[in-house]
């Protein structure tokens, strides 16, 4: 099923430029100083309520294109989606008219309990059917295409039958949703599970990719000596992830690129510097494209 068309007007479209994840700590500074950044993305659930938080969002939306990124819809839950959550999301979408709406390939709700993290899915035909059903339902309710983000995972299931990149491609093909390609998550998951990140990129359908995420991660040593990469969004983007980003741009062209930083939040100036670096990569891709076209 293909959903209806996307943005409602030029102002709300997200440009193929660098954006920043907007956190509460930066609300006032963004509204007061109006930094030179192309767009912002927020976590949808943070704005389900009213009051000053919602007012800040409207103030930002007045001056910038906005993307809504959900963490709690739980597309991979075996049980039905939470209707109240969906209607809150729909209300927020109506209120701010975001240029993009995204969620995760993961689950976080079972038995009416929200577990507080993005949990790993077994990559099976059953899970594929569940995720597609929930993406269809969400797109039908919102009358919008959504993007589904590839996860970072610390656990695989031996009974998985579908490589994650093929799973992502299948969800996009069956539902018409877009793909939010989180390059840091690809790097983290590939490192944790022994995948080749280039194979992952090559497995994503170019025409479905509509946004890219970049973030920092940490190396963690477990009690038994194993080393894992943890997607903690608490540091600058790693060198290897910048390199993988260039590979992604080569395959997908210039795409809206978001700098995420959610823990140990850095000053706005630091995020702007990361965004500027992404913008430089995007500019090089555009120059290369023009050179070929000339």
């Amino acid at each position: 099923m293909s959903p209806a068309g996307t943005a409602r007007g030029e102002d709300s479209l997200i440009p193929a430029a660098a954006g920043i994840g907007l956190r509460f700590a930066h609300h006032a500074e963004v509204v007061e100083t109006r930094p030179a950044v192309a767009w912002f993305e927020v976590h949808a659930e943070n704005y389900f309520g009213g009051g000053s938080v919602r007012r800040y969002l409207h103030a930002v939306r007045r001056d910038y294109p906005l993307s809504l990124h959900g963490v709690g819809l739980s597309l991979g839950s075996a049980e039905p989606l939470d209707c109240r959550h969906l209607s809150r999301l729909a209300e927020l979408v109506r209120a701010v008219e975001p240029g993009l709406i995204s969620e995760h390939l993961s689950w976080s709700v079972v038995g009416g309990q929200y577990l507080g993290d993005l949990l790993p899915l077994p990559l099976t035909q059953e899970a594929l059917a569940v995720v597609c059903r929930h993406v269809d339902q969400t797109q039908a309710l919102l009358k919008r295409r959504i993007l589904v983000e590839n996860p970072s995972t610390y656990l695989q299931f031996g009974h998985s039958t579908i490589p994650e990149w093929e799973f992502m491609a299948a969800v996009a093909a069956r539902t018409g949703c877009g793909i939010l390609c989180d390059v840091n998550n690809i790097f983290v998951s590939a490192s944790n599970h022994g995948w080749d990140p280039i194979v992952y990129l090559d497995g994503l359908p170019r025409q479905a990719v509509a946004e890219i995420h970049l973030a920092g991660h940490a190396l963690v040593t477990l009690d038994n000596g194993s080393v894992l990469r943890i997607d903690n969004h608490g540091s600058p983007v790693a060198r290897e992830v910048w390199a993988l980003y260039e590979e992604a741009l080569r395959r997908f062209g210039a795409q809206p690129t978001l700098i995420e930083w959610d823990t140990d939040i850095a000053p706005l100036a630091v995020l702007l510097a990361e965004a500027a670096r992404a913008a430089a990569c995007l500019e090089r891709v555009r120059e290369t494209a023009h050179a070929f076209a000339a």
Partner: peptide, 27 residues
Amino acid sequence: GARASLAPGASLELALRIGIYRNTCIG
């Protein structure tokens, strides 16, 4: 299900990796 079919890794490794998720949930 996961324990019996977990691809490489001992049960302890599984426990530790679940611990990562547990820490995030609680946190």
